[in-house]
Amino acid sequence: MTDRHFAALDDADFPTFAPGTVWLVGAGPGGPGLLTLLAYRALGEADVVVHDALVSPAILDLAPAHVERIHAGKRGGKPSPKQADITIRLIDLARAGKKVLRLKGGDPFMFGRGGEEAGELSRAGIPFRIVPGISSGLGGLAYAGLPVTHRDTNHTVLFLTGHDETGTVPSAVDWPAVSAAAPVLVMFMAVKHLPIIAERLRAAGRPQHEPVTIVSHAATPGQSVIETTLERVALLEDVPTPAIIVVGPVDAHRANLDWYRAELRSHVFG
């Protein structure tokens, strides 16, 4: 990609991507069109892109060919770099005078460990910038016709992660409180432990027939949607990941709001 691709943005009031700095940037839920303009600009100016596994090749292809690409993806159950090593790499690259783009799927501050990395950069004296992205728990669900709030069904929503730093179900979660907190629950990284989570939600009072919607590879041509219930999630096999899981009544709106239907591989389970 050459500078002419960014000519239309030259007059905008964008911050300078200076050597020796790190930008922690959200890449959105998947599709390149959901990048922010600042994220798009950063891809054209970076010296090196340190990216997660969830960042699509189509997005990485927006960076010029000479830009170094470093895979730093962390996927459950697969060999992954340690978080400490990723942060050290960012610091070393910045100290070498590079313009370092740390590219994360979704939003870096929404279960993306962006706060941890930014904290380490701060302690190391490395200047950094946070560039928010569209979270898959918002934009990704919109591609499946799932509004996280709707005045006909819910005025509150709760976001939570399906595993802790050890890879197990979060032990500190108060499941009765979670169950009662909001009609709609949006869960990140929860596929592996979904049967256990569903059992705990049911034990905490959620109805066994409550809808559960699983959106895999959101906002990409490979997006798929599974619709089931809390009672039947234990029967699911081989759910594609990454996936966002929604518990609650907003599934009722999919019939009218599923605008991406022509490009979905959608089916109903049970």
Rank of each mutant, 00 (worst) to 15 (best):
H163V: 03
H155M: 04
L9K: 11
S171E: 12
H5T: 13
W23F: 12
F14I: 05
P183F: 03
P183W: 05
G28S: 09
I197D: 01
R232N: 15
V250P: 05
T166A: 14
L9H: 14
I126A: 10
L230A: 00
G106C: 08
A144D: 06
I88Q: 14
E45C: 11
P211G: 00
G30R: 06
E116K: 12
V100M: 09
E263I: 05
L230I: 00
G97Q: 03
Q83T: 06
E231I: 00
R151S: 13
P81S: 05
M187K: 03
R261H: 12
E120K: 15
D174R: 09
I197Y: 01
I134Q: 12
D152F: 07
E210P: 00
H155N: 09
G137R: 10
R265A: 11
T16L: 13
L236F: 12
V148I: 15
A7K: 13
L37E: 14
H51S: 08
K74S: 04
E117R: 10
R206D: 00
G248L: 01
V247C: 01
A234F: 01
T229V: 01
A218M: 07
A203K: 13
S266Y: 14
E263R: 11
V173L: 13
N154R: 03
P249I: 01
A65D: 12
G105W: 11
L236N: 10
S122K: 15
A219Y: 08
S171R: 13
S80N: 05
R202I: 06
W23C: 02
V67Q: 09
A172M: 04
V50G: 04
P183Q: 07
H71R: 10
V233K: 00
T213N: 02
T166I: 02
V22P: 03
M189W: 02
G162D: 04
H66C: 05
G26R: 02
R265D: 13
P132S: 10
I214S: 00
S136T: 15
A94E: 04
T36N: 12
F159D: 05
I70Y: 04
F269L: 12
H217D: 14
T36Q: 13
W259D: 13
